[in-house]
């Protein structure tokens, strides 16, 4: 297992764990979200092949009400 940080919170995940796996496990499949890993955008089209490494800092964001 490795530890990654998702939206500021630690998360234990298997050694081989992709952006796609994370989206599925967070029940965000089909939701409009954007992801960055260590401040770099990870395009949605590359989730399947993007493997996390220990201590990756992941941000998953959505659009919410704002002015």
């Amino acid at each position: 297992m490795i530890n990654i940080i998702v939206n500021g919170k630690g998360r234990q995940v298997p050694d081989r764990y992709s952006a796609e796996n994370l989206v599925t496990d967070m029940e965000l499949t089909g939701h409009r979200v954007a992801m960055e890993v260590n401040r770099e955008i990870v395009p949605r089209s590359t989730y399947t092949g993007h493997w996390f490494v220990a201590d990756d800092k992941i941000e998953i964001v959505s659009a919410i009400g704002g002015g």
């Binding site: 967070m26 965000l28 941000e59 964001v61 959505s62 659009a63 919410i64 704002g66």
Partner: peptide, 14 residues
């Protein structure tokens, strides 16, 4: 229409 970008609420009802 303006929107804000914020962390997705993990654990919210899908």
């Amino acid at each position: 229409i303006t929107v804000a970008i914020r962390r997705t609420n993990i654990g919210q009802n899908p």
